[in-house]
Simulated scan of single mutants.
Amino acid sequence: MTGSQLRQTWLIFSQATTVALAGVFVVASLKPEWLHQGPSVLATLPTAVGAPPRAAVQFSYAAAAQAASPAVVAVLANKPALTQREIDADPWLRFHFGRRIPQRQQTGLGSGVIVSPEGYVLTNNHVVSGATEIRVQLPDGREAAARLVGTDPETDLAVLRIELAAPLPVIHPGRAEDLQVGDVVLAIGNPFNVGQTVTSGIVSALGRSQLGLSTFENFIQTDAAINPGNSGGALVDAQGRLVGINTAIYSRTGGGSLGIGFAIPVDSAYQVLEALIKDGKVSRGWIGVITGEVNPEVVEMMKLSIQQGVLVKEVFKASPAAKAGVEAGDVVTEVNGHAVRSPRELINVVAALKPESQVQVQVQRGKQSLSLQLQVGLRKPLTDEGTPEE
């Protein structure tokens, strides 16, 4: 073989290798599961011209759906007939009924998740609020009356209990703190009462708040289709573990999904679950302040030496904050070692504190940094209508 032929052969080999490596890189970037799941990508190519292809590469979330679905139930709640005022205030009801007031008792439709062998079911408060009778239907066809264990309107969660012959399917909890934007999730529930349905998507965002859906908001946002009837159902990860309770959708019409759904993280849901089972209510901390944002204008006006924190606008008389020495104009920067950067963060951090516990509160007063000892008070709960019980 001449030198020219060797060079030509080497050139062809190097080009083919470059193309092959480029192909592997593209597959690794866009479809990494192809390199780890199922048959080789090369196995999808024909063995010869005109020969039928080998088994195509398949990647499925069937195992995750099969693991979680048996524990996701339909919740039917009989409620008194709607008033026209209730219909006018709710876009979804307005879409269905318009000016026609239904005279008969209505049946609310939602979903729930069996979370323990004892028959405890997590669902949304708005699914069962005001119900005179609640029934739960399992995917295997079994049905049972449900007892309302307790509700927590401030997180829009409720706990039911059913009594059926063992064994009951129970979902396995995941870890919401391990979720990352881009992770695959499945939404499982009973949308529009068509029967159990599984939809897939990704985690679109974490820690969503200030949506006006509940008092304590720390939602997982997902583009997995969530529709009316999905409320109270399961948001699960790619292994079928519960990571959230589906709660709400964003819709311009109050109807179907637009690819923006919200779920309560599983760790928050289980905290409420344990409190309702143990005490029948959720006890939260309270310090007694009215707060505002710290922005550049506030920093300049008050000549602060910090850029982040929560401005104290007012301190209630005889409140825990007043007794600890907190004053209007102070900027709260930390509570018990947790940095706070917004009023919403402060509410969530304080609410998680145990009433009557002692905590350290760091405040900035002008150029002076202070550490104050504070005994946490008991936050008065909201009613189902969302009004404080003062």
Rank of each mutant, 00 (worst) to 15 (best):
A275E: 15
I287D: 04
I290N: 13
I290S: 14
G288C: 04
A275N: 14
G285M: 04
D267P: 03
P265Q: 11
V289P: 03
S283T: 13
D279T: 09
G255R: 12
I287N: 00
I287S: 00
G254Q: 08
G254C: 09
P265G: 10
E274T: 13
D267H: 13
A263E: 06
R252N: 13
I277E: 11
E274V: 09
F262A: 02
T253G: 06
I249L: 08
S251N: 06
G285S: 10
W286I: 05
A275L: 09
R284D: 07
E274H: 15
F262T: 00
G288T: 11
R284W: 03
A269R: 10
I260Y: 00
G256F: 06
S283D: 14
Y250E: 10
V289D: 00
A269Q: 12
G259R: 00
L273G: 06
S283V: 12
D267I: 05
F262S: 04
A275K: 12
W286E: 04
V289S: 02
W286C: 07
A263Q: 04
I249C: 02
I277C: 06
A269V: 07
K281P: 01
G254P: 05
Y250P: 00
L276E: 08
I290R: 14
K281M: 11
A263P: 04
V266A: 07
I249P: 00
I264Y: 05
A263C: 13
G256A: 12
S251G: 03
V272C: 08
W286Y: 15
I277L: 14
A275G: 08
S283H: 13
G280M: 11
Y250V: 09
V272I: 14
P265R: 13
D267M: 05
K278W: 03
Y270I: 11
G288L: 04
V282Y: 05
G259Q: 01
V266P: 04
S283G: 06
G261M: 01
D279W: 11
D267E: 15
V282K: 09
I264N: 00
L273E: 09
S283R: 15
G261D: 00
I287C: 04
V282Q: 11
I287Y: 01
T253V: 08
G280K: 09
I260H: 03
V282C: 12
Y270N: 13
